[in-house]
Design a protein around this nucleic acid. Sequence first.
DNA 1: TTGTACGATGATAGCGCTGTCAATTACCCT
DNA 2: AGGGTAATTGACAGCGCTATCATCGTACAA
Lengths: 342, 342
Amino acid sequence: MTLPKNKSRRVTLDDVAIRARVSAVTASRVLRKPEMVSADLRARVDSAVRELAYIPNQLASALASTHTGRIGVIVPSLTNGVFGDYLRALHDVFVPAGFQVLVLNSHYLAGREEKAVATMLGQFPEAMILAGVDQTPHARRSLQQAGIPVVQTMEMTDDPIDINIGLSQREAGYVAARHLFDLGHRHVGQISAPHDARSRQRLEGYLQACAEFHATPMLASTEEPCTVPLGGSLLTELLTRWPKVTGIFCGNDNLALGALFECQRRGIRVPQDLSIIGFNDLEDSACAYPSLSTIAVPRYEMARRAAEIILEITRGTGVRPKQRRIDLGFQLIARDSTGKAG
Amino acid sequence: MTLPKNKSRRVTLDDVAIRARVSAVTASRVLRKPEMVSADLRARVDSAVRELAYIPNQLASALASTHTGRIGVIVPSLTNGVFGDYLRALHDVFVPAGFQVLVLNSHYLAGREEKAVATMLGQFPEAMILAGVDQTPHARRSLQQAGIPVVQTMEMTDDPIDINIGLSQREAGYVAARHLFDLGHRHVGQISAPHDARSRQRLEGYLQACAEFHATPMLASTEEPCTVPLGGSLLTELLTRWPKVTGIFCGNDNLALGALFECQRRGIRVPQDLSIIGFNDLEDSACAYPSLSTIAVPRYEMARRAAEIILEITRGTGVRPKQRRIDLGFQLIARDSTGKAG
DNA sequence: TTGTACGATGATAGCGCTGTCAATTACCCT
DNA sequence: AGGGTAATTGACAGCGCTATCATCGTACAA
């Protein structure tokens, strides 16, 4: 029927066009490419938009233009401070650029990540950002077929799906452990939650350092998600099995903080009796007492770069940057929680 | 043209239908209401879906059905541990229910929140969840006109936009301060970052307790976003101005942790020289040394309830629950960081 | 004056899916 | 056998918007 549809439905572009006495196309143009429309009509449309409190339906717009304005992000954790900063960086870049950021949580599980990838692709994002490089084969294939920019972050791989920006977790783990050996420690332990692939790589770096210094690896680990309290119990476990430990590399700053608290609780002096080094350089680490030695990873910068690369590809006509692998490196931050052995 | 469109475009429902030798509608039904289709056709469609690796276009689906499957969430911070748990709860409920959660960050600014509301409404979410109750008048109006369930969380208001689920921050602040007075402290200070409305209300509770005990309010505050390191500097500021302080109520656990570290740094014994109570009961607080007294707020539960109420409204035909204001309360957790005065 | 070029505007045809209702078939009853 | 009911399936018409191309003037060169 050609009757005006007077249902109490939402205001559409047609309503605006009718009110402004122009065609729908013109109204659409005023909103997207105002410079193509004469000042006269533009003013009419603008005021119609205001009067009707018109809100464009992004859904319809996306369907018609095949430009969804969505960026899919999959992170393994929402609570971890690392990903807080990471997501903040993505929002900081994408939201002003008119994109919306869709976030899904993989809970550090490959299976959940695969599912999250499928869910996300159903939203037809214009790009995807993933944490880590260990996607399942099936997820890899889906991502490649999607034909959109895909950025793998946080670690490095020789065989990126598309673009890879991160740092060598293994090397960083090595440097952290090495820091303790260099300070003269010979009984150096490690605590971690190696269900996280990056945690495992840091562990490898630690093992490499152990081998180099002919030291026995001393490990305590858990499959549970990483938390501050866990640092305390893992330290306890480690000290029970290897009482001679004088230096400990914690898989991340949360564990390190928990270990530090546990030391305080037991009257173990840090660093006199035990040196502690963490990983990530969370905000709290610098102001702990003693301040925590750690490895600083450029998580904000990493996400920002990932976002900007995507913006470039999307705006330019899909041309990839020359460099598909970007290693942002890391930094050893030696503070007060690590000291000379002896 | 009626030629098969052989562009390298994505697989559509039509492709599936053709391959399964059924109509598009039937293919659609197999995916949404399989019980309506005979086993025979269902099997054919299912295998076509698998063979073609078909991914439904949610955009088109949403446009056609006016069911977007989106939930809009606006939080003031992504990094704060409180909202980490809060968002996790929302994901835990909504994702299995087939909804996607869109998150926008207001950075604790009313203006940014108003803008976020507008952006979000352009996505046509089926419901909105907000933190706090102090939306701008304009944002309130937009939300009311949207005709969708709106849940305001974290605090209580007498005049909710739609549904309100939270707790009395003022009362909780009062109880925290009162805890210190009850332990015999007479010089009780408060540090906070009152750019956050809820922080201000806790402050009011503190002031009320001060009045009741005829104590002089002793405050240090900042307009910066709340962080652990900030707790240290605010404590320093407070102690400089009021050296006699023996008890301190921190606006949240991050500040409390920072204050605790600062005490350790200065050799101030907690709780012997200074009692500290925080707010929120973050995970770390229980395992700090000494463990932090605090107020536990049901942030996970609050978000979960909000999500479930929305699910009920959305599934039932839009009927609101009888109770539009739900006070989930809070709990004083007295640990080792607070002790008797003297 | 005529022809050309270009800028502004509109008509049309979908984007990929689902709501609706009509058509078809199978089944059962009298 | 005829008629009625229910279970399946399909045809059609949009959802609200934008890409595309046709159309209409108007300005300017020839």
